[in-house]
Amino acid sequence: MDVVTLVFGVFALWAVVSALVCVTRRSPISSAMWLVSTMFALAGIYVLLNAEFIAAIQVLVYAGAVMVLFLFVIMLLNVDAEIGPMRRSYGWVVGVGAALVLGAQLLVMRGYSVQRLADEISTMPLGVDPSLVFPEGAAARAATASRGVVGGIAEPLFQAYLIPFEITSVLLLAAAIGAVVLAKKRL
């Protein structure tokens, strides 16, 4: 087992354990802190998957900004740890059952490798070269190698995806105005 797989295993275990603890804590504050822990573990995994910029954004935006917003609201509402049963009466069975079924269906994906993905997508007989089926992957790696991590992601973001990028700014403005209108007592 090489060192990358080992590190991936450590981060994956960290993420799954934190997520499980996050779902099962009674106090909303500790749930939020364990979710932050999950997000940090995921940021580590993003670095292993050659997405260093997204890893930085994950820590800054998700673990930083979004979770601080959650903590603000929890403390503003002064929500105590839940008294009585943590779960809805029927929820325990339904929740775990649905999660197990869904997880079992999705876990089939663990058998995927680049080779198998290429074999299934291409119309050619089995044993096709993945680099012929996915030329964009090699092109992206070359762009990252020549222009750095941020340069590699900036070029498609501000050319091919410029319109969606601008629309996001409108979305964020609408969300900010909506949040103010909803949360204010009287306008």
Partner: peptide, 21 residues
């Protein structure tokens, strides 16, 4: 590729369980 997809499946299932529970 495979391990990452498996991990995301597990995390998604945990999230679904949390929403329902």
């Amino acid at each position: 590729l495979g391990p990452s997809l498996a991990l995301s499946a597990v995390l998604f299932a945990i999230g679904v369980a949390g929403v329902l529970i």
